[in-house]
Write a protein that binds this DNA or RNA. Structure first.
Lengths: 138, 138
DNA sequence: AGTAAATTTGCAACAATGATGCAATATTTT
DNA sequence: AAAATATTGCATCATTGTTGCAAATTTACT
């Protein structure tokens, strides 16, 4: 279970580059979910917008980060805590969005329940997002 | 329970205009979820892009349609079957996205289960999306 | 039905987000 | 350290969504 940027990159056989390290470190230090805009604000002076897009795509493909479903059209990314195999994420935890501070938190302990679907439907993957007030904002 | 466009508009005290009728009829005839792009393809020749945006916003505010969370950055809308009060949607059904035909289906019969959250978190609203293969694509 | 008031629409312009091709640069491999 | 490979930055473009404002439409009121 590596927890520093370089180890994670090595483990996924990715070149160790400045942008990948910086972006990954930002995820590691932040904890919650991040959007492209968040990252651009944080490291955008050092790296091109396009590089950030491509880095995020690479991280998703390798299973280093995962996408979080939202109803606005913003794409949010969060670190995978379980080690996800490349191309096959197996996070199945609930995501929590705080209405107050707007932070998105991975509830790694809370597993998405299995639901019974109508006849004919074959489930493959589930996502669940709960909104409300987080511990810090109460 | 009105099922035609004009009645729904009247019930929500909205002006009866061509665009609103056409867009609402498209939802009524389609059944599944629609994106702005879907609607633009269908009625885009008749109405301006901006009008479609504003119409969809109005419908969401009035509780005529609701948003469906996605991991790509596309906003999807679907008709509310339960009558949602303006500003307060109370759909709590599971959404199904078919990996084959890419259709998004509201599983009105399937209620989102309640999950137990860690200490401090106060839930307010839940969303659940299941992907897989739908009945028609099997 | 006809007119005034209120609402909605279309247009123009703009901002943000995301994708692609290609040459320059950095990283890895040998 | 040089060659091979991979990544980056730049320029450019497409898509998506927003806002202000004048023109057109719808509704409300006699």
């Amino acid at each position: 279970m590596p927890k520093n940027a370089v180890d994670i990159l090595k483990q996924n056989r990715l070149s160790i580059t400045g942008s990948r390290q910086k972006i990954l470190e930002f995820f590691l230090s932040n904890g919650g979910a991040l959007s492209h805009a968040d990252i651009e604000k944080n490291v955008g002076e050092a790296f091109d917008r396009v590089t950030i897009y491509r880095t995020l795509q690479t991280f998703v493909e390798k299973g280093i980060i995962h996408l979080i479903p939202t109803t606005d059209n913003s794409i949010k990314y969060a670190l995978c805590k379980n080690d996800c195999a490349p191309g096959h994420h197996h996070d199945n935890h609930v995501h929590f969005i705080c209405d107050e501070c707007e932070k998105i938190i991975c509830l790694d302990q809370v597993t998405i329940p299995v639901v019974r679907l109508p006849k004919g439907f074959t489930p493959q993957h589930s996502e669940m997002v709960v909104t409300g007030i987080c511990g810090e904002c109460r």
